[in-house]
C-alpha cells in the first residue's frame, strides 16, 4: 500500500471543468471517502488516480513518485466497480487470479491465492462458478477479491454498494468495512451516499462542482461543516448511524 496524493489536479473536457484544483492525500492504510452529488467530479477523481484520465494540470503521486503520466497497467491499482465488471468468460477463481496472471505468477500459486481471498470474503466454495450465476452481493465480493489479489498500491471503489438492496448493503458495509480495516488497505471510496461514506471511511472529502469543499473525519464533517453546501449535503441524523467512525 502507498500514500496517494493528488496535487492541484485540474481536468477539463472541452469547455467543461470536471476537476478544479483538487488536492487530497490518502495516507497509507487509510480509507478516504470521496463524497458528493452527481457530476461533482468523484468518478473523474477516481479515474485520474487509476490512470484512465490524464489531468489537464496538476500531479498524481504514489509514495511521492510522480505517476501522472504512468499508464493504468503500470500503476498497480485495484478497481471495484458499481456494475461489478467481472470477466464473464472466466470462472470466479480465474477472475480473482487475473491480475496475478498478468504478473506472470504460476498457475498453482494463482489458484491458492484466489482460494485464500475467496475464503476471506466468505465465498470460498464458488471458485469454479460462472460469475454471472452469482447474486449481486456475491459478484461484488468477487470484484473486491480480484482487486485485492494484486496487493494494490491503492484500492479504488466506485460506488460499490449502489444497486444492492438496503439489507444487503447494510450487511456488506459492515463486513467489507471491517475487512478493509483488518487488511490495512489504502482506499479511495467514491460514493454519493453520505451514510455509506460516514460508516466506511476514515476520512471524507466532500466534492462540489469539481472542488474539494472539506476534508475531514466523519465527525469533523458532521460537527463542523466547512460550508453551507457541506452542511446541507451531510445533513444526517447521527443517532441513526451507530457504526459511524467517530
Amino acid at each position: 500500500m502507498a500514500d496517494v496524493t493528488l496535487d492541484a489536479v485540474r481536468k477539463e473536457y472541452g469547455g467543461t471543468t470536471a476537476l478544479d484544483g483538487v488536492s487530497i492525500t490518502v495516507s497509507d492504510g487509510e480509507i478516504l471517502g470521496v463524497l458528493g452529488p452527481s457530476g461533482c467530479g468523484k468518478t473523474t477523481t477516481l479515474r485520474t488516480v487509476a490512470g484512465f484520465e490524464t489531468p489537464t494540470d496538476g500531479t498524481v503521486r504514489f509514495d511521492g513518485e510522480d505517476v501522472t503520466n504512468v499508464p493504468p497497467e503500470n500503476r498497480n491499482v485495484g478497481l471495484v466497480f458499481q456494475e461489478y465488471a467481472l470477466f464473464d468468460n472466466m470462472t470466479v477463481a480465474e477472475n480473482v487470479a487475473f491480475g496475478l496472471r498478468m504478473r506472470g505468477v504460476g498457475k498453482r500459486e494463482r489458484r491458492t491465492r484466489a482460494e485464500e481471498l475467496l475464503e476471506l470474503l466468505d465465498i470460498g466454495e464458488m471458485g469454479d462458478r460462472d460469475p454471472t450465476t452469482l447474486s449481486g452481493g456475491q459478484q461484488q465480493r468477487v470484484g473486491l477479491a480480484r482487486a485485492l489479489a494484486i496487493e494494490p498500491n491503492i484500492l479504488l471503489l466506485d460506488e460499490p454498494m449502489t444497486g444492492l438492496d438496503a439489507q444487503l448493503k447494510a450487511r456488506l458495509r459492515t463486513e467489507i468495512g471491517a475487512l478493509l480495516a483488518e487488511l490495512d488497505v489504502t482506499g479511495l471510496y467514491v460514493t454519493h451516499d453520505q451514510e455509506e461514506a460516514m460508516v466506511m471511511c476514515d476520512r471524507v472529502a466532500v466534492l462540489n462542482e469539481g472542488r474539494v469543499e472539506q476534508v475531514g473525519t466523519p465527525r469533523e464533517i458532521y460537527e463542523s461543516p466547512a460550508s453551507e453546501f457541506v452542511s446541507e449535503f451531510v445533513a444526517l441524523d447521527a443517532p441513526d448511524l451507530p457504526f459511524v467512525r467517530w
Partner: peptide, 18 residues
C-alpha cells in the same frame, strides 16, 4: 462490449493487447 471490464483488466496490469 463491457468497457468497465476492460478498464478492470487494465488496472489489474493487462496491457492494451492483453
Amino acid at each position: 462490449v463491457d468497457s468497465a471490464a476492460e478498464e478492470a483488466a487494465q488496472a489489474l496490469g493487462a496491457t492494451p493487447f492483453e
